[in-house]
Structure formats: structure tokens, C-alpha cells
């Protein structure tokens, strides 16, 4: 079982645009990935409704888990995405 513990980097938390980007990336992973906060039940990372329900904010620690071929690489990519401030990368409203 591959595991990564990441701190959510996006200013608005794992909501809205950052959540959509993460869920889309998880859906494209070659293996099923789960995500959880603390000791709460892990939920499928490709489920937008479940990921939103985590209510993870900037600074919240989340745990990603996956099994199977490609799990390590998939988690590396997702962990890197979560750690970034995806809100700050939004093009400034000119």
C-alpha cells in the first residue's frame, strides 16, 4: 500500500477549483486512490462530493492511499498537486 501525507496548499482549501483539479487528476490515475483526513473514513479521491465533504482547508493534513501498479507514481503526482496553492496559480483578474 502506497501512502502519502500532504498538507493542503490552496488558499481556499480543497474546495471549488482546487477540488475539481484534484478529483479530475485522481480520476485519471491508473489505480483507485483514496483520501482521508485524520482518523476519519477514507473516501474515493475520484468522487467530487466525497472530497468536498472532507472540508479540508489550507494547512489541513490529508492522507492519500493507493494499491497496485503505478500507485507510487500516481500518489507522487497527486501529492504534489495538493501541496501547491492552486488558487494563487489562477490568472489574475485583469
Amino acid at each position: 500500500m502506497a501512502t502519502r501525507t500532504v498538507t493542503v496548499g490552496s488558499a481556499s482549501g480543497l474546495h471549488a477549483r482546487p477540488a475539481a483539479l484534484f478529483v479530475a487528476a485522481a480520476g485519471a490515475a491508473p489505480v483507485p486512490v483514496t483520501i482521508r483526513t485524520g482518523e476519519k473514513r477514507a473516501v474515493p479521491a475520484n468522487s467530487m462530493l466525497s472530497v468536498l465533504s472532507l472540508g479540508a482547508k489550507q494547512g489541513t493534513e490529508v492522507v492519500l492511499e493507493a494499491d497496485g501498479e503505478g500507485a507510487e507514481a500516481a500518489l507522487d503526482g497527486l501529492a504534489e498537486l495538493l501541496a501547491r496553492d492552486l488558487d494563487a496559480e489562477e490568472p489574475a483578474d485583469a
Binding site: A16, A20, P44, L52, D93
Partner: peptide
């Protein structure tokens, strides 16, 4: 409008949630 497009795409992801 970019913000609106983001909102609509996020809503589409809720409606096609595999658990749902």
C-alpha cells in the same frame, strides 16, 4: 467568463460523481 466556467465544470463533476 473563466470563473463561471470553473463553477459549471465543478458542478458537472458533482453530477457525474461515481458514488452518486
Amino acid at each position: 467568463e473563466k470563473t463561471l466556467v470553473d463553477v459549471l465544470r465543478a458542478q458537472a463533476m458533482m453530477a457525474e460523481d461515481p458514488l452518486l
